[in-house]
Design a protein around this nucleic acid. Structure first.
Lengths: 351, 351
DNA sequence: AATTTATTTGGGAGCGCTCCCAAAAAGTGC
DNA sequence: GCACTTTTTGGGAGCGCTCCCAAATAAATT
């Protein structure tokens, strides 16, 4: 049914080793022999057996992508497919396969043992929101190749790539300040997640750069959901803000609802800037000014960082931060004054 | 660094074979020996090498999930993550890994050779909208385990699972008829895709069941995008329909826009029923009555069908159709008359 | 206790490839 | 044409597991 190297060798009148060399494009094979071998291979449709090759090379050419089960609920529509496409495209270009693992916390241990220690995969990319993801730490400590998508401050040696959440938060907030708003509040994300922490940091930095100090009553923590945004907005109302930077569009939708119920007009009474630029952001009333992130690129860069570890054996941690851009729509009230345009944060790459 | 069976055997004072038996839960090992071996395994953190095992068993315990590159653009937000979750959950339960391949048509050939014929995966699940997907046909003809998510009429032997698109189309259309509408048009999906064809068939069946015949001027074909829906609606307007069954919510959004521009009120002047129940459907004006599909279940069933082939060697084609349900909101005008409720199509399973 | 039967264990062979080393063939220079 | 170098080729060993068969051991039967 299925051919082996040895059989191809016999058919081509050469040895097993020569066929192996041909397949692996090893230079030291006479052109005529190489041609003859390729012909036989094509003729019989020979395909080397992956497991045998993996065993001999101790490489599987498979990269694991780990997504904690809770994530897709939080990161809304474009995020998940876009980052996967970035990863997938980059892996295919480099001849790797993608093993996707959507894991609940209980399944992580088993995955770690079977897939990573059992060498089903050569390395993993973890899409973790949790700042203390145990899988990343463990893989890193055991010397298994791992890249985190999302900052990983817990363990300074871990290689990661992230979007510029601090810069995005700062940019969004400064945009509101520049429009003349002075009572700028924020609905922050959960302070257990790097994006939640970083976007809030950007907010605070912007205020301080304008000589304002971030007051506790202007900061409400949400959980990145619509309901969370709704409730957070209610907690913010007594402080009478004239603008709110909301750390996710989904929360912004909830906030808009709360404002509508409170009889406040957006952007006249209160300006809103969201974050993520989800599909929905174009359809809210009014359409959301928001921060767009290079999600696809995030995936591509993660792959490059991982393969650098795999193929070049780089052990020094790499850190890449990708720039984000402000997408101006109506909810911030800028359109009447400036016309639509986009702003972009600075990109910086460190190691 | 990493242990092998042989080393564990030496440490436990038994043979390689015995350790292998312990690991594979083979019954014929004395309990005390089994205990001793497990202790050593746990102590040193031994994990069998996947490639070696794969080579010996000729199984990889990996299932490939193939998604043609064009698909995620068409199927909107909940579809893609939901079906993957269904697949992933079911695979994990059965001890398999998921290899995800997002492929462009040019990459399909290479994938077929390397992954499938090279036995990187034990079988594949293909999420194909195209009714003539070449990958499915080829895998099937070469006897490699494959399950199609989405009807596959091309090759009668192919095992597939699908949602009840015909039933959904019929249900949506009948709902409009039951509400007293008689000039019921449709914006159909592309007639190259099974869902496009099937939903239109359901529409026609419903009309006929009510003694009406589907007129050409009441049928406009869209491409499942918002823009396509917008243009299709324009083509439909001259026929002065009082209701439209739109074969996807995204197209319905476009249709609503066209109606708004034409000064028609929904549902008063014209009733709309969409399809898919995407996130957005709750936010349109008015909120869309639509058809919800058991997407998650689709993934789970696909896995069961594939593993049945893999583990039981079933060769007869299996066909499963999952029921859908009507979600009633305001765009059909039913709420005033009946109050909200849901209807569900019949489930049927054939072979 | 001796014999038969069932259970448990060990070791060889093999899965299909790569990698290394030595042998063979081809090429160089005088 | 001969000695020497370089290129090309073949075969052994090994990657780490499973599977089968036979040997060893334990249990059952008379």
């Amino acid at each position: 049914m299925s051919y082996t190297l040895e059989e191809i060798a016999r058919l081509a009148g050469v040895s097993r080793s020569t066929v192996s060399r041909v397949i692996n494009h090893h230079p030291s094979v006479r052109p005529e022999v190489r041609e003859r071998v390729w012909r036989i291979i094509r003729e019989v449709g020979y395909q080397p057996h992956a497991a045998a090759r993996n065993l001999a090379t101790r490489r599987s050419q498979i990269v694991g992508v780990v997504i904690p089960e809770t994530l897709p609920k939080v990161f809304s529509d474009p995020y998940f497919p876009a980052v996967l496409r970035g990863i997938s495209d980059a892996l295919i270009e480099r001849g790797y396969h993608l093993m996707l693992s959507l894991l609940s916390p209980q399944q992580e241990e088993d995955f770690y043992q079977r897939a990573l220690r059992g060498r089903v995969v050569d390395g993993i990319i973890v899409l973790s929101a949790r700042i203390t993801d145990p899988l990343i730490r463990r893989a890193y400590q055991e010397g298994l190749p791992v890249v985190s998508i999302g900052r990983y401050p817990q363990e300074p040696g871990v290689t990661y790539v992230d979007v510029d959440n601090v810069g995005g938060g700062r940019m969004a907030t400064e945009h509101l300040l520049r429009l003349g708003r002075r009572r700028v509040a924020t609905i922050a994300g959960p302070q257990t997640m790097a994006p939640g922490i970083d976007r809030l940091e950007g907010y605070c930095a912007a205020l301080q750069a304008w000589g304002l100090s971030p007051l506790p009553e202007w900061i409400a923590e949400g959980d990145f959901t619509e309901a969370g945004g709704y409730m957070a907005m209610h907690r913010l109302l007594p402080a009478r803000p004239d603008a709110v930077f909301v750390a996710s569009d989904l929360m912004a939708v909830g906030a808009l609802k709360a404002l509508r119920e409170a009889g406040l007009r957006v952007p006249d009474d209160i300006a809103i800037v969201g974050y993520d630029d989800v599909e929905l952001a174009r359809f809210t009333d009014p359409p959301l000014t928001t921060v767009r992130q290079p999600i696809y690129e995030l995936g591509r860069v993660a792959v490059h960082l991982l393969l650098r570890q795999l193929e070049e054996g780089t052990r020094e941690p790499q850190r890449v931060i990708l720039p984000v851009e402000l997408v101006i729509r109506s909810s911030c009230g800028a359109l009447r004054e400036f016309g639509a345009h986009e702003l972009s944060s600075e990109s910086f790459i460190g190691s």
